[in-house]
């Protein structure tokens, strides 16, 4: 059930990297809102700033090169960017958390999975030892790990990739977060395991009325798991709409091109469609619209000024001069 209040509101977020080659504007004025119980897909090519956006939300941008230089991240009305590190450790993992991309690497090899779930609960909640164990078992059951009493004494290397990713899920869910970010959480999994993981998470998300940000480059996942989609290009969100609306009426030429790049079963083609050119270098963005050099509808104004955000249909936003 999606309610109307925003759990998370991101306003004009900017994260830059200061490198020897210049300032890389990895996240360059990103704004979006996430409603309670909503799953938002964050889509874009590699290097467009999806992951850095997510790490900015939980304030774990790689340092010292990366810095959040502006904007607001309002989690239930509180601006996370004004918190100090100590306050952030109390928020991270408890109210906003993340599942990382590679389940084979994201669990610590030298601790039992029971310990890895336990410690998360221990730092965030005041519970007795027995209560925590019960909770860990409950979490493992929630993510469908068979015989949790046995499994919680085992180490990550004794489990399959799909299981490990579900355990990452159990860790993420163990403190009932308001917002869960899944950063390419299914990319490293086999397709069948991917489907299982997705449907499990969809189910948990609906039951717990959890708000999720699903970072992916796979429109199949978006179609299956997301209520809304935000399309990112070169550090900016270029289009943001409800999933069905975006698939039916894409407004931005980049979104249209992305959707056209998906191979279709019913059509026989000799060559697959691809977008001409390369994504721009983030430390040397062209003036005006960053997509202009690759856009087939490019106009004179596109090369001068970045288009403002326009509401092209109710709840459907795009940044393109074609739309006004």
């Amino acid at each position: 059930m999606i309610s109307n209040d925003n759990v998370l509101e991101v306003q004009d977020l900017k994260t830059h990297f200061y490198t020897s080659r210049g300032v890389v504007k990895a996240v360059d004025g990103v704004s979006f809102a996430l409603k309670r119980g909503e799953a938002l897909g964050l889509v874009g090519e590699s290097g467009c700033g999806k992951s850095i956006t997510c790490f900015s939300l939980i304030r774990l941008v790689p340092r010292p090169a990366g810095r959040i230089v502006g904007g607001k991240v309002l989690l239930e009305g509180e601006d996370l960017l004004t918190k100090n590190e100590k306050e952030m450790t109390k928020i991270r993992g408890k109210r906003i958390t993340m599942i990382l991309q590679d389940p084979m690497m994201s669990l610590n090899p030298v601790f039992t999975i029971g310990e890895q779930i336990t410690e998360t609960i221990r730092v965030h909640q005041k519970l007795g030892k027995m209560e925590i164990w019960e909770k860990v078992k409950e979490m493992l059951r929630l993510v469908r790990i068979p015989s949790p009493e046995v499994r919680m004494r085992e180490y990550p290397h004794q489990m399959s990739g799909g299981m490990r990713q579900r355990i990452s899920g159990a860790i993420a869910l163990s403190c009932q977060p308001s917002v869960l970010i899944a950063d390419e959480a299914t990319t490293a999994l086999d397709v069948t395991i991917q489907a299982q993981f997705l449907s499990l998470f969809k189910e948990i998300q609906e039951q717990a009325n959890l708000s999720m940000i699903v970072v992916t480059h796979d429109f199949g996942i978006v179609a299956r798991a997301c209520d809304r989609v935000a399309v990112m290009y070169a550090g900016k969100i270029v289009e943001n709409a409800e999933t069905r609306e975006l698939f039916n009426n894409p407004a931005h030429p980049y979104t249209i091109a992305l959707l056209n790049s998906l191979p279709k079963m019913e059509m026989k083609v000799d060559t697959l469609y691809s977008i001409e050119g390369q994504p721009p270098e983030l430390h040397a963005l062209p003036p005006g619209c960053s997509f202009a050099p690759r856009c087939s509808h490019v106009m004179e104004i596109c090369q001068r000024e970045y288009p403002p955000q326009k509401e092209v249909a109710p709840g459907h936003f795009a940044r393109c001069w074609l739309k006004g």
């Binding site: 408890k94 990382l100 690497m105 610590n108 410690e119 998360t120 990452s168």
Partner: peptide, 13 residues
């Protein structure tokens, strides 16, 4: 990655 994960979990440094 597991160190990133430990930080994501909100463990103190």
């Amino acid at each position: 990655e597991y160190i990133k994960m430990a930080r994501v979990k909100g463990l103190p440094e």
